[in-house]
């Protein structure tokens, strides 16, 4: 796919265990190895930027886009603080971030860029960038997940990202930071006792990974609401990352999929998955949700009732 602005996409887990404690559990170690494999593939690619959508960066005022050139801090996870600290110094593509913000506006989305000393970059983004881009070989851009956003906003947000890549002539590694099933154990467990929280979560994770392996990203996007109802803790209104990823990567099923690793992270489903654009296609689902190009906001149903 030489004309695609997407070199490949990655779906990676947000929890810090592969970064801070890969030796404590075989599965955490496999996830770490998969991160390392992905890092090497990024280094060998001709990508210009790493573009991240993180489910552990919630926002309220539209979507926020990290634009600080060299954010630097020492991050500690709210839950897993006992695993250690995560010092970081990243390099952001500020030009990309600002144009991404402008393109959000052109598609009707409210967004803003973030450029503040000490801004708390979220655990998922810190883990992903620390493992995938440890030497800041490529500049990055991180976009938040708005807690109130649903399908239309998430898809348009992805399209605005793609607009920006095309306008700037840049090739991207698209990274979604998200668990598959996201229910963790609510008690402490020994690392060796880690497992997927339930058989149901395990079955759904396997089904999702089958779709990924077959390159059926748009099919997964169409299944997003069902996945949310089945295996996502109802922290937010929808399972949004797959909508953003599909929209950014081109809304099709034309990918070569590869699950590099899959393991539990305190009960949640952690997977490192690569999707590379190809010319082949698979999928027999009827796409029954409308596409959207421009976000027009609330319909004010209550006011008109």
């Amino acid at each position: 796919m030489k004309d695609s602005p997407i070199v490949f996409g990655l779906y990676v887990p947000p929890h810090p265990h592969p970064l801070l404690a890969p030796e404590k559990n075989e599965g955490w170690g496999k996830l770490r190895q998969a991160f390392d494999t992905a890092r090497k593939r990024i280094e060998e690619s001709d990508a210009d930027i790493i573009l991240i959508y993180s489910t552990t960066w919630p926002s309220v005022i539209g979507h926020q886009i990290q634009a600080r050139s060299n954010p630097e801090w020492v991050h500690v996870d709210d839950d897993f603080h006992y695993l250690g600290s995560m010092p970081y110094k990243f390099e952001m593509d500020s030009d990309f971030s600002h144009q991404y913000h402008e393109n959000c506006g052109k598609r009707g989305l409210n967004s803003r860029t973030i450029d503040y000393d000490g801004f708390p970059i979220d655990t998922g983004s810190v883990v992903a960038l620390s493992l995938l881009n440890p030497d800041n070989r490529l500049p990055a851009c991180i976009v938040s997940s708005n807690v109130y956003a649903n399908r239309a906003e998430s898809i348009v947000l992805g399209k605005a990202a793609r607009d920006t890549l095309e306008q700037q002539g840049k090739k991207a590694i698209v990274v979604v930071v998200s668990s598959l099933s996201n229910r963790m154990f609510t008690d402490y467990i020994k690392p060796e006792d880690d497992r997927i929280h339930s058989a149901k979560d395990q079955e759904w994770n396997q089904k999702i990974m089958q779709f990924f392996q077959e390159g059926r990203l748009e099919d997964l996007s169409q299944l997003s609401r069902e996945i949310h109802n089945q295996i996502r803790v109802q922290k937010v209104v929808a399972y949004k990352p797959i909508w953003w990823m599909a929209a950014t990567m081109g809304q099709n099923n034309n990918y070569q999929g590869e699950v590099l690793a899959y393991a539990s992270l305190h009960g949640s489903g952690g997977a490192v998955i690569q999707l590379t654009p190809t010319t082949g296609s698979i999928g027999d689902k009827e796409f029954d949700e409308d596409d959207i190009e421009f976000y027009t906001g609330d319909r004010h149903v209550l006011d008109n009732g």
Partner: peptide
């Protein structure tokens, strides 16, 4: 300070840093 694995308490006597609101920085 949202925790999913139990309730946490602070166990060090002193903290000095900068708190930046992730939603309203």
């Amino acid at each position: 300070w949202q925790t999913y694995v139990g309730t946490h308490f602070l166990g060090l006597p002193h903290f000095k840093s900068k708190s930046v609101d992730p939603v309203f920085p």
